[in-house]
Amino acid sequence: MNILELISLKAYYGNKQVLHGIDMVIRKNAITAVIGPSGCGKSTLLLTLNRMLEECGGRAEGEIIFDGKDFFAYPKEEVRKRIGIVFQKPTPFPLSIYRNLTYAPIYYGVRDKKRLKQIVESKLKVAGLYEEVQSDLHQSALQLSGGQQQRLCIARALTVEPEILLLDEPCSALDIKNTANIEQMLLRLARDYTIVIVTHNLAQAKRISDYTAFLLDGELVEYDETAKIFSRPEDQRTREYIEGIYG
């Protein structure tokens, strides 16, 4: 089933066009990987899907169908609640770990202390951070290591129970073990969530994703099942990229 359908989606920063009409569908409860060389517009694509593009000084054109309805007709708060995003660089709030995770639930009206605690613990467990931080949930999140911070941000994005989770190179700051942890986590999450992940790590895309999109200079060159893209790409450019020509 398709949860998102992009129809001729364009994105601009000022006069500069970054996405040149993307047509693609995102399937529910699957992991979709977006790959492509640096600067091709992967992050911009994710920002568009979370309505954060305008906050970053850009603007989108075209059509998106989200859950059967016009994406741009939803209030943007609702879109952002239902489609979570984790940025490339970890951005823990300058609060304690606990308050990082209760920040959004409290906003959405959860007041019960027990319920909040439960959310915090379950999301930390999902993100594989619970073991490491359970002894002191009230320490500042800024004191965590880069990898821990990134997992905290993933946990935080999950606290609002999004349907889709967008991840922008979540593993670029992590070591092999942490990366493996996150990949495990994503595979588990894929049962309940739809995941779109931008990655420079082709092996990673191959390992975890069901579908892979190859983006080049703001155009969707090829989009298919991961197995097919990596074994029998149709487009010459995709093949070159996968073989390591663009880097």
């Binding site: 906050e55 943007k76 708060e77 609702e78 952002r80 239902r82 940025f87 951005t91 709030f93 920040y103």
Partner: peptide
């Protein structure tokens, strides 16, 4: 105030 943190907050749908 760090802009990236602001954006992470908005990205949660928070006002």
């Amino acid at each position: 105030f760090n802009r990236a943190i602001l954006q992470s907050s908005y990205a949660l749908g928070v006002s």
